[in-house]
Design a protein around this nucleic acid. Structure first.
Lengths: 194, 194
DNA sequence: GAAAAATGAATGAACGTTCATTTTTTATAC
DNA sequence: GTATAAAAAATGAACGTTCATTCATTTTTC
């Protein structure tokens, strides 16, 4: 892997600091001065990398969304059966949310608030296209219920946000078995019953 | 119904204004001055009803959560079978989210951000106890999957937030049939398969 | 030593909150 | 009813703070 350039390191540090402050304190309590301090950078420097605070938040969102999607689809290929493919993607998504806790919390916060420009949100959704295509194939083959992809997403991927939130607050502990159970519920909800 | 006192009218107006501004602009762009203006009240008046901004937000959250719960359980009684009872509660929740759109969006924003005190969140959750009891009964009878209630919630009630968000952005339109389909997916995910 | 990157004090706008003043309501008397 | 006075509610200008953003200056890189 190519070593990151110095400015790339700073950019990453700013993104990490933004994520950290936003998920812990909320957008309204994540001032530029604190973001700068946490990233070991002067406030003015942020403006060399981002236009303003809104641009910073939008870019952080898009960057994380892209890395989320990359993770989700990294082992997937279109030769897989629908069920195989779905299981594969779903488990990678769960894995991302378990490993990249802060980033996942950030995304779910963005997706449920007007924090992010509507335009950036639209942009972020595009990354999920392979999953939508897979679902379409599943519906054509009659193995997945015939409903819009919003519904499929709501009952398979979206619930993970709730579970990860609960895990974060230590209301539940998540292990291999828990993930498997959650997967089965996701599949049960969208599979076409014979 | 007893007519609301004048101060109760003002309180309600403040709550409505807070909800409206927060769901449209986010907490960080819902200043007290705007809330006051929208409620036709002077900024200082807010402090006669609430201690400060944080207290305002917490109280709005708790009040709406209570009205949400009241709606959810209004037709439910413990003589119902588990399946009947669940269907009843679930549909009332869907109804609340369809009719009280702003309030529902506010709740989902609160539940996914650090906007609300952790204490108030804990307080808000208590309202759902009858649903948790029902699930417990269902598990004892072997009609509902044996998993923690966080998981049951994540796959039945939580998905509605996603769907309502999509509806709000006019990505989908929701009718009677759509709700019925969503209900069946919720039930499919948590029912114990023979 | 020129160019690029980074700094951080300074700026002005916007915010949450206060409180001296005004308005409205209530209680009491005629 | 009306007048009056005390109490309660509401006001909004003012205050101190914090914030996002800028830019003259300094530091680093090549």
């Amino acid at each position: 892997m190519q070593p990151l350039s110095k400015s790339e390191i700073k950019r990453k540090a700013l993104i990490k600091a933004t994520v950290c402050l936003v998920i812990n304190n909320g957008f309204h309590a994540a001032p530029m001065s604190k973001i700068a301090k946490m990233a070991n950078v002067s406030p003015g420097t942020i403006y060399l990398y981002f236009e303003n605070k809104q641009d910073l938040i939008n870019k952080v969102y898009l960057e994380i969304k892209a890395s989320f999607a990359a993770h989700a689809f990294k082992d997937f290929n279109e030769q897989m059966t629908v069920e195989e493919g779905f299981k594969n993607i779903w488990k990678q998504i769960a894995d991302f949310k378990l490993m990249q806790v802060d980033e996942a919390l950030f995304l779910s916060q963005c997706d449920n608030t007007p924090m992010i420009d509507e335009e950036s949100k639209k942009e972020g959704i595009k990354h999920l296209q392979p999953l939508l295509d897979l679902w379409k194939r599943g519906q054509e083959q009659g193995v997945i219920k015939n409903c819009c992809h919003y519904m499929l997403y709501a009952y398979t991927v979206y619930p993970l946000a709730f579970l990860m939130n609960a895990k974060q607050k230590k209301d539940i502990t998540i292990n291999e078995q828990y993930i498997q159970d959650a997967y089965l519920m996701a599949w049960d909800s969208i599979k076409q019953s014979k």
